[in-house]
C-alpha cells in the first residue's frame, strides 16, 4: 500500500543551494504539490512554496518538474515512470527568493505600463459572443508566468528591459481586440514592448496550462497588426498616394 516516491527539491536562496532528497508516501491521484505539502508537514516545515487554489485556477505554484515548467498542482505523479525521481526546482527566469519561491515582481511592473481598456467615444456596450470568444481565450490567463519563464528572450537572453514577454502580449492582444477599445497600441508593441524580439518559437504556447494559443492567437496577430502599420510596402504606398494615415485598428480595418 504505502508506495514511496523519491523527491528531490531545490533548497536554497540567492546565495546558493542544493537539491535535497525526501521520501514521499504516495496516495492515489497525487500531484507534485501534495508531495511538497507532505514534506512541509512531516520533514521540512520551512520549505518555501507558493500555492493557493490547488485547482490550476490561480497560477501560484509554478515550478520546474524534471526540467519542465509546470504547475505543481496539475502535475500528477502517475504521469511519471514509477522509478523516476521527481525533481522540483524553482522557475529559472526570475530571481530566487527561497526554495521554490521566486521574485516575480517584474511582471507586475510590466503590467502597469500597458494602457488599460480605453472605451471608444461611440461605445454602446452591445457586444456579441463572436467577439467575446476571441477575447475570452486571452482572459483565461491565470498569470502563472510559466510562459514568461520559458520564453528564451527572457530566460536565456535576459532581455527583460526590452521585451514584455508572452503574458503581456496576451494582455495587449486582449485589449487590442476588444470591440469597445479605442486605443491603438501598435507603436507600443513595436518599440517599448519589443514584439520583434519574439521569434515565435512557441515554447510559451507549449507550457500554457490554460491552453491559450499564445503564439497563434495573440502574438502573431499582433505582429501582423504591427506589419500593417510599419512594414507593409503596399500599404505604405497606398497611404502615400491617398495622403492619409489610417490607423490599422479602426472599425473596418483601415
Amino acid at each position: 500500500m504505502a508506495e514511496v516516491r523519491k523527491f528531490k527539491v531545490y533548497r536554497g536562496d540567492k546565495n546558493g543551494g542544493q537539491l535535497t532528497e525526501y521520501n514521499v508516501q504516495v496516495e492515489p491521484g497525487m500531484v507534485v504539490l501534495d508531495g511538497i505539502h507532505q514534506i512541509q508537514r512531516t520533514q521540512a516545515a520551512d520549505l518555501a512554496c507558493r500555492w493557493n487554489c490547488k485547482a490550476a485556477k490561480c497560477g501560484s505554484c509554478s515550478a520546474e518538474v524534471n526540467g519542465k515548467p509546470r504547475l505543481l498542482c496539475k502535475t500528477r505523479l502517475d504521469d511519471f515512470d514509477p522509478a523516476e525521481i521527481i525533481t522540483v526546482r524553482p522557475v529559472k527566469t526570475f530571481p530566487l527568493i527561497r526554495d521554490l519561491v521566486c521574485d516575480v515582481s517584474w511582471n507586475f511592473e510590466v503590467n502597469k505600463k500597458i494602457p488599460p481598456l480605453t472605451p471608444k467615444k461611440t461605445a454602446d456596450w452591445v457586444m456579441h459572443q463572436e467577439d467575446m470568444d476571441r477575447v475570452q481565450e486571452f482572459r483565461k490567463c491565470i498569470e502563472c508566468f510559466l510562459c514568461q519563464n520559458v520564453c528564451h528572450v527572457l530566460r536565456n537572453h535576459d532581455l527583460k528591459d526590452r521585451f514584455y514577454g508572452p503574458r503581456f502580449m496576451v494582455r495587449i492582444a486582449c485589449l487590442e481586440m476588444h470591440p469597445m477599445d479605442g486605443l491603438d497600441r501598435t507603436k507600443l508593441l513595436k518599440d517599448e514592448a519589443g514584439l520583434g524580439f519574439c521569434n515565435i518559437t512557441k515554447c510559451c504556447t507549449e507550457v500554457c496550462p490554460e491552453e491559450i494559443h499564445i503564439t497563434d492567437n495573440a502574438i502573431i496577430p499582433l505582429k501582423e497588426r504591427v506589419a500593417d502599420r510599419h512594414y507593409d510596402p503596399l500599404r505604405a504606398f497606398w497611404r502615400k498616394i491617398m495622403g492619409a494615415d489610417h490607423p490599422c485598428t479602426c472599425a473596418d480595418g483601415g
Binding site: 516545515a45 520551512d46 520549505l47 527568493i97
Partner: peptide, 15 residues
C-alpha cells in the same frame, strides 16, 4: 514553535 529555517519565506512560521 518553529525549529527550522529563519524568517525568510518560512511557511511553518506563518502557520
Amino acid at each position: 514553535c518553529i525549529k527550522e529555517g529563519n524568517k525568510m519565506f518560512n511557511p511553518g512560521w506563518h502557520l
